[in-house]
Write a protein that binds this DNA or RNA. Structure first.
Lengths: 234, 234
DNA sequence: TAGTGGTCTAGACCACAAA
DNA sequence: TTGTGGTCTAGACCACTAG
């Protein structure tokens, strides 16, 4: 119910509108005034209130339809932004010293699970990479990658010795689409060994399959050290 | 290098600009033309290219600074939107029959870990809720909630018998801020029993602490059935 | 068909940061 | 100081959709 306090400023207007929603003055399902009316109330143009309304709509607080007007979302499905970072960068940003060790890099046939996940028949060789990331010298994450050789042409073992695959890929084969799955699992024996944990320790596993346009780049399995938490917020 | 193909349309411009980034025509760190120049190139106004540029910047593809100009992000930290849904809704949306069973609801003192997580001293009683969600009759998720009684006044055991806490909270005490943590763990004995799994099965645990403005609402621990995956994409 | 949001224009002023 | 993006205005036309 705040009036046009200071001046017309789309962020202020957004805050005011959000306040009405979160305070319960406007309830889920309610129809809110039209843009023209709000513009009049806030003493600004329709463009300005429009921007505030658009922002609240993309954030999930409002539903907008032409002719149907703007309503308060009945079911505000909130989205928590989950970072998909360069691993070493993430470690450094957490204030730790980031280490990287290539454990394995070779061509080979993917096993059935990987081939199925990638939608391949399993008879085409992929580039397999295993690497360990450390934070302050302590095992932090282990990655298993299966990459389509034709798509990542130019990526050699020599490069991988010095540079994590994700950094090379970011610059040379940037992804345009990715599917991400997060689950809890027990690490395979070699991963457990690298992480220095017992093989039956619950481990957070992130699986990411990525494409560049229509071309498959490959798959990443990222095993986190025990106790590692993925955090975000709203 | 596409010209002003059809007409000035901010989505088309965004697509064209994104194409230049993803094709490698513009590389990370590169400075891109100023708004005025792009407007000239696309034969539209600065507002229109500005909208396309703003969109790409919020998506993480561009960095913009006044006077400094616009550059291609050197480190495009992509964000994957993670849904924070009403649990029953999510089960239904997956095409399953959603079931809800209240397992426990009582006032009690939180244990040390919960009190610490909530930043409480542990001498104030909280409302504890345990509930089981099923999908097609099969155990799907178990939630443990600790709620601050003063903040959720009106939430009774009678209500909780019929309605999951999250649905009541959504309508009556909508959160304005939340911290979310995702980790792998072994479920406590009572959770393992409810999920009908062995206690040493790796389980995906989502912990969410939520506030309404400055007031603490409470904490949720959501244990997922074995094999459950959290999925998202870019 | 009429009303609503979605978009674009042409111009202006302002805020911030680099030189 | 100066150049860049950030925002706002006043107006117009268009696209979708509810009635």
């Amino acid at each position: 119910m705040t009036g046009p306090a200071g001046k017309a400023d789309w962020k202020a207007i957004r805050g005011d509108l959000l306040g009405r929603i979160q305070s319960g003055a406007w309830k889920p399902g309610d129809q809110i005034p039209r843009e023209v009316e709000l513009a009049e109330h806030y003493e600004c143009t329709r463009s300005t209130v429009g921007r505030a309304l658009r922002d609240l709509a993309t954030a999930g607080f409002l539903d907008r339809k032409r002719k149907g007007g703007t309503t308060v979302s009945a079911n505000p499905v909130r989205k928590a932004p989950l970072d998909v970072p360069i691993i070493s960068e993430a470690i450094r940003k957490a204030g730790h010293d980031a280490g990287y060790h290539l454990l394995d890099a070779r061509e080979g046939l993917p096993d059935g699970a990987v081939a199925a996940e990638l939608g391949l028949r399993g008879d085409a060789p992929l580039l397999f990479i295993a690497a360990l990331y450390t934070a302050n010298g302590v095992p932090h994450q282990v990655e298993h990658r299966w990459l389509v050789p034709a798509t990542v042409a130019g990526l050699s073992r020599g490069i991988l010795n010095d540079m994590p695959a994700d950094e090379w890929l970011l610059r040379n084969v940037p992804l345009t689409r990715a599917q991400i799955a997060i689950e809890a699992t027990c690490p395979p024996p070699d991963v457990a060994r690298a992480l220095q944990t017992a093989p039956d320790t619950p481990t957070l596993l992130i699986t990411r399959t990525s494409w560049r346009q229509a071309r498959l780049i490959g798959m990443l399995r990222l095993y986190h050290a025990p106790g590692h938490r993925l955090t975000t917020g709203i």
